[in-house]
Write a protein that binds this DNA or RNA. Structure first.
Length: 764
DNA sequence: GGCCCACGGGG
DNA sequence: GGGTACGTGGGCC
């Protein structure tokens, strides 16, 4: 039968089994069972064979030749049920490799199976166990035939009031919509299980379901002694835990947590510095959600149930549409890297690149290097941070008619052009690439592994980009090429990651050095050509012409010239033109660590980067003022921007703002007694305790700084206990309103003092 | 300036 | 799958 693989796991309950989950060509759910013979590799050593034969856990060994660090060596391939345990027994005798791979990963690599490909499975099949078909594989063959039917995607959202789940909504891509609410939590939980059973989705989409929805569902079903039935095989929710995060797995389905994906792999392409469902949906879908405080939500539950149901439904609909939008990217990453969509959608750049390399290495008869041990990781962490990209400090002020250039995939193209790969460093050969400013040289006689892999990703991307022009499925192709860009860009991050198998401080240093060399060269060339370079950072430069002539024509001409001189596959692109722009240094004096700018194009559309007065420890008033100031300044309304600041300051002074606008919300990270020092959190926790209210770890509260004597924390009070007459106007003006506005206005040359009323004299 | 603690998403 | 994410900012002393 035809089978398309979505997900897989390993179970050793009876015999070592790999379970493959997916659908047939009609979209019905399928589980494929296959056996696996786990193994690992050990360096060949004299007398080792005899010792291995004494270990009863080892089933058999094979002598084999494998390539490591560019050289062929002899290894024992040791078959045993638990590679990690057997490796412990012999690790002092010889170095072992690939003993900690997850066995479903091992299986997919060895069989050469990539997720979302079509397979032809032969073997006895049956119905049941939650699947339309269960098949015991006797033969698996790859096939080109088969069209992926639309997988059924269901988005889910829950609402929690006073620690209990009172509502949930679900929406799927075939039009199913459901909101259910009840005072009876058991009824809600049972309804959720029923929905999963009846709708039977292939993909479950959530927004932060890993850390919130499924965590709460798990806790509350235990509290209510109800077994949640979400998976296909009847198993409970499974949490794959790591030190600081957790992923919720629903066996037989793919749980895609859009927050996990967006915050790890998409943050670079989003303007937003925050990854709330609202901000992310606004940017990707062009529509968002109403912002509702916790108090309002509780109030809605009491008085406006219907409105709350609409709110809940909207969250599911946004999540569903985000999933539909981003699925191509996730699937492409999965197809190319060979990792499961569940894993791909939760990986960091470094892990993504590493897994891609592990698979490609196996396909080339290579053994992947081992990840470093703890002491080595610590040593790597302690190294001097690598000198990063070159930054040319921004010129102050509001600029007009700006052209933006950037190097197309700077680090990947450097890696390919100069053959940057760990095993090519300083080896003996005929021709070298010498790293500018360093003693490093990379062999130029033959291709290195990492650089060749990056090259093949870029080539694949190039092919897709060429197809886009006349294609019907432009959007899909565009998403494909973009995910390849993500994968290529991930390699530099992997070089720096101390835990990575192909970690290389020297390769990272070299990539950065070449990057600096070529951006500086581009800046020089741009200046020679007659541009004023107003700002440059790592891979992009922002230019204007002194006499504001036709920048578009000059920019295109410049581009042609510079690209003719760039080596290898390096290329400078024209990113766009903007009619107004400003660049914001991080501090008043000192360095700029991160790109921070605001640009406005011909259509009046504003692009913001790096302006982060959006955290929840800033009050709403400060956040909205910063946005307004940016807009006004870019529109050339400097006077109005200053007026907006003055008006806000006046409003605060005259106590004309609502407590909501100046309340700052925060979360207790421990319980009242556990704080070592006096701070806002410990003071509020104590106050909550005195009132007999919950002040446990995780409690969220909003507070206001009251006027009076004492430190900030002495004067912090729960928002609901304060009125307009209580807040400390000076604190809000000096610590919230002015800093937020000043971030922007300092680039126009203002001093913080000047933002106050008397500084506005400039405009009479 | 050093230390402590918080921020992120969700409700 | 991960040997206290992680980079940064405010308040206190």
């Amino acid at each position: 039968m035809k089978f398309c693989l979505f997900d897989a796991d390993y179970s050793s309950s009876e015999k070592p089994n790999v379970r493959l989950f997916g659908t047939d060509d009609k979209g019905n759910s399928v589980m494929v069972l296959d056996s696996i013979e786990p193994y690992f590799y050990a360096f060949c050593k004299k007398g080792l064979k005899a010792e291995l034969e004494k270990i009863k856990e080892i089933k058999r060994t094979e002598l084999t030749k494998k390539i490591i660090n560019g050289r062929e060596k002899s290894f024992y391939k040791i078959y045993c049920e638990r590679p990690a345990e057997v490796r412990e027994m012999i690790k002092d005798r010889t170095e072992c490799f690939e003993y900690s791979l997850n066995l479903y990963k091992r299986y997919l690599i060895d069989k050469g199976i990539y997720p979302l490909e079509w397979l032809d499975i032969k073997g006895p099949s049956r119905k049941g166990e939650g699947f339309a078909t269960v098949i015991e594989a006797e033969r698996i063959k790859k096939t080109k035939n088969g069209i992926l039917g639309q997988p059924k995607i269901m988005a889910l959202d829950i609402e929690v009031i006073d620690g209990r789940i009172v509502m949930f909504s679900a929406a799927d891509n075939i039009g199913y919509r459901e909101v259910f609410s009840s005072e009876d939590e058991k009824a809600v939980l049972e309804k959720i299980s029923r929905t999963f059973l009846e709708r039977d989705p292939d993909i479950v989409a959530t927004y932060n379901g890993d850390l919130f929805d499924f965590d709460i569902l798990n806790q509350r079903s235990q509290a209510n002694k109800i077994k949640l039935m979400l998976s296909r095989d009847g198993s409970s929710l499974y949490f794959r835990k790591s030190m600081w995060t957790s992923s919720a797995k629903i066996k037989g389905r793919i749980h895609i947590d859009l927050f996990a994906f967006v915050s790890r792999l998409m943050f670079q392409q989003l303007q937003s510095e925050v990854f709330t469902l609202d901000e992310v949906s606004r940017e990707i879908l062009g529509r968002g959600k109403e912002s509702i405080s916790l108090e309002e939500l509780a109030n809605m539950w009491k008085n406006k149930r219907k409105l709350m149901e609409d709110y809940c439904m909207n969250d599911s609909l946004l999540t569903l549409d985000l999933c539909k939008n981003l699925l191509t990217q996730i699937f492409t990453l999965s197809r190319v890297s060979g990792q499961l969509p569940f894993d791909c959608s939760r990986m960091t750049f470094g892990a993504l690149s590493e897994w891609y390399l592990i698979r490609k290495a196996a396909e080339r008869n290579m053994i992947s290097p081992n990840p470093a041990h703890y002491a080595e990781i610590q040593r790597r962490r302690a190294k001097v941070p690598i000198k990063g990209g070159y930054v040319k400090e921004p010129m102050k002020g509001l600029h007009s008619n700006i052209g933006v250039f950037d190097f197309r995939s700077l680090y990947p193209s450097v890696i390919v052009t100069f053959n940057i790969s760990p095993e090519m460093l300083n080896i003996k050969c005929k021709k070298y690439n010498h790293v500018p400013g360093f003693r490093y040289k990379f062999c130029a006689d033959k291709k290195g592994f990492v650089s060749e892999m990056v090259e093949s990703i870029l080539e694949e991307r190039g092919k897709i980009r060429k197809k886009i022009k006349n294609a019907k499925n432009r959007k899909e192709l565009d998403e494909q090429q973009f995910s390849l860009k993500i994968l290529a860009n991930a390699t530099y991050g992997m070089f720096i990651n101390p835990k990575a198998r192909w970690y290389s401080y020297e390769c990272a240093e070299s990539s950065a050095a070449y990057g600096r060399h070529y951006i500086k060269q581009a800046i020089d060339e741009a200046e020679k050509y007659g541009f004023l370079v107003i700002y440059a950072d790592t891979d992009s430069l922002f230019v204007k012409l002194a006499d504001e002539k036709d920048i578009k024509k000059s920019a295109k001409d410049f581009l042609k010239k510079i690209n003719a001189s760039l080596p290898g596959i390096m290329e400078l692109d024209l990113q766009g033109f903007y009619i107004k722009g400003m660049f914001i240094p991080q501090k008043l004096e000192g360095y700029t660590a991160k790109k921070r700018y605001a640009l406005m194009d011909e259509k009046g559309i504003i692009t913001l980067r790096g302006l982060e007065a959006v955290r929840r420890d800033w009050c709403d008033l400060a956040k909205s003022l910063q946005r307004e100031v940016i807009r006004l300044v870019l529109e050339g309304k400097e006077k109005e921007a200053l007026e907006a600041v003055r008006t806000t300051v006046k409003k605060v002074k005259n106590r004309q703002v609502d407590i909501d606008e100046i309340a700052i919300s925060t979360q207790l990270s421990r319980s009242a007694g556990q704080y070592k020092t006096k701070n806002i959190h410990s003071v509020i926790a104590r106050k909550l305790n005195e009132e007999g209210k919950a002040a446990a770890e995780g409690t969220i509260f909003s507070y206001v700084i009251k006027k009076g004597a004492g430190s900030i924390s002495d004067r912090a009070e729960l928002a609901y206990k304060t009125g307009k007459d209580d807040y400390d106007a000076d604190y809000y003006i000096n610590n919230q309103i002015l800093p937020a506005a000043f971030r922007i206005l300092q680039t126009l040359g203002y001093k913080q003092q000047e933002l106050l009323a008397n500084g506005l004299k400039r405009f009479g």
